[in-house]
């Protein structure tokens, strides 16, 4: 699997973006890294937003609250990213930062920060149709967490 460069090096405010885009025969995936589950959930969300828009111009002007119940942790990750995607596609809300109040195997409560798309300041890149379970993984090795997720474009 080849890794794409470029976005992993981007920085957004104080948030260190730790993710890569990964290849898929017809679409692409996001591999997010961090020192905790919270980190990888956050970085996967920022990775998703980087796929739909140039993320460097997104400012924190609004916040949204999200609560999600899920069947298990993989399901929680899919539902979480689906929520981030929904906010973008339905409300044009671009996420720039995330703070988790609670994150367990099957539940999360978070505040997300960002702003509504403005064509004069933001550049959109691609439509993402959906977040999939295809080859999804969330794993920890020696304290380093990785989450991998593929999206349908």
């Amino acid at each position: 699997m080849k890794h794409l460069n470029g976005l992993a090096a981007e920085r957004l405010y104080e948030v260190k973006q730790e993710f890569k885009f990964i290849d898929h025969p017809s679409d692409f995936g996001i591999e997010a890294y961090g020192e905790s589950v919270q980190d990888v959930f956050k970085n996967a969300a920022l990775g998703l937003i980087s796929a739909v828009a140039v993320s460097s111009g997104i400012e924190i002007r609004q916040e949204r609250k999200i609560e999600i119940n899920a069947m298990d942790r993989d399901n929680l990750l899919v539902r979480w990213l689906t929520e981030i995607l929904y906010l973008y596609d339905a409300e044009k809300f671009l996420t720039a930062d995330v703070k988790f109040e609670k994150l367990t195997e099957t539940f999360l409560k978070a505040k997300i920060f960002g702003e509504v798309y403005n064509s004069t300041r933001h550049e959109l890149k691609a439509d993402v149709k959906a977040v999939t379970y295809h080859q999804l993984k969330i794993e920890e090795k020696n304290g380093d967490w990785t989450a991998r997720i593929f999206v349908d474009v």
């Binding site: 290849d23 025969p25 017809s26 679409d27 692409f28 474009v153």
Partner: peptide, 8 residues
Amino acid sequence: GRVMSRHA
């Protein structure tokens, strides 16, 4: 049908 990824 695609034979090449979007990245490639």
